[in-house]
Each structure stands twice: as C-alpha cells, then as structure tokens.
Computed example of a mutant assay.
Amino acid sequence: MRVIAWITEGTWPSCIDAARSHAPEAADIVLLHVTGPEAPGAAHGAFAGLLGRGHPERDPGTAVEHLATTSAERLLAEAAQRLGRPCKRVERTGRVEREVVAAAEGADLLILARDGGRNHLGPRSIGPASRFIVDHAPCPVLLVWPEAAPGVSSPSGSDRL
C-alpha cells in the first residue's frame, strides 16, 4: 500500500497523525510538500521590472527559491520525525493542486487536511487548492481536520451545510 501525506505549513501534524493511525505498518508512506511558484516568481519579476536586468547575481528570486527549499526540507524532516517510521520525502515545485494530484497517481490513499474556515462545518472548511485535489485525486482521499472538528450544533454549524 502506498500512502501520500500532503504536508503544508499550517496543517501537517494532523496529516502525520492520520498516517500513523490509518496506514498499515507495512505501507510505503510518502511525505509530500509542494512549493508554489508565486513568491520566487514575484521576486524575479520585481527585480527584472523595477531594478534592471544588468546584474542577475543580485536577483532576490534566487534567494527566495533557496529559502523555500530550506524551509520545505526542515518541514519534511519534522514531519518524518513525528511519523516515527520509515518514509520517503518528496519536494515538488509548481501549481500546488496539480502537483499533489500528479503525485497521487498510483497511490492507494492521499491524506490532506482542511485548510479553509475551521470554525464551522461545510464546504468553506476546504480551500480552493484542497477542493481541486479532492475533486481530481486519482485515489481515495482521507480529509482530516487540523484540530478538533466543530460540533454540528456550533453557532456556524449545521445551518450552513
């Protein structure tokens, strides 16, 4: 069995806990982090458009790319430590939702956490990237709450379902 846990900055512990609980001991677990192109692209564009093109060695986009890589490596290392069992770490770059769907090809389970509004049940508890992933995943999806789920009788609960 191959299980992919999508690791994001705000919700990764819940995905790791779900993998520990739901993936059989013999499962191949892949911890996946995807870095979007937005921040490095903006820095590259600002440098090229506003600061000139004469000194590519001063392009801040390159530094932002290195920082993103370092941050992803650190996050994946923390997630692997929390998992406490052998796993593969994968870092991808691109449109987040498309990269996660592509990485899930051939997987038996994809684990991701809700990333929208966390104080009520319903469709707004899932952000746009996660909605795309849930709708297009080529395998079963386990969607977890990053913390305790709000109750059905919560003030913003069942009336918004």
Rank of each mutant, 00 (worst) to 15 (best):
M1T: 15
E73M: 02
A23I: 11
D159C: 04
R85A: 09
R160S: 10
H55T: 04
P140S: 11
H66Y: 01
G106L: 06
A43Y: 11
G122R: 06
A46N: 10
G106A: 10
S21N: 11
E147V: 11
R131M: 11
S125M: 04
T8H: 06
R118W: 05
H66F: 00
V3K: 07
W145I: 11
R20C: 03
V152L: 11
P150N: 10
G157F: 08
F132T: 13
T93M: 02
G157S: 09
A79E: 07
G54W: 05
S156E: 15
R89W: 00
T62C: 03
D135L: 14
E65L: 10
A102M: 03
V3H: 11
L51W: 15
P86S: 15
R85H: 06
P37D: 12
S21Y: 02
P56D: 04
R95E: 12
Q81W: 00
D159S: 13
A77V: 04
T69K: 12
E73V: 02
P37S: 08
R2Q: 13
R74K: 04
P60D: 06
T62M: 07
H66Q: 14
A46R: 12
P40W: 05
I111N: 04
S153T: 13
E73Q: 13
P146A: 09
G127C: 09
L142Y: 05
A43I: 00
A19W: 11
D159Y: 05
P56N: 12
G127T: 09
A149K: 15
E147Q: 15
I126L: 15
P60N: 02
H120Y: 10
L161K: 03
C87A: 15
L112Y: 06
W6E: 01
E65I: 01
G94S: 08
P24E: 12
L112E: 06
H44V: 09
F47N: 09
S154C: 14
A63M: 01
R74M: 03
A80M: 04
D17T: 11
E25N: 02
P140L: 06
A103F: 08
P56W: 14
A77C: 00
P24V: 08
R160I: 04
G10Y: 08
G157V: 10
T70G: 09
P140I: 08
N119P: 00
E25L: 07
C139P: 02
H66V: 09
A148V: 10
T93R: 15
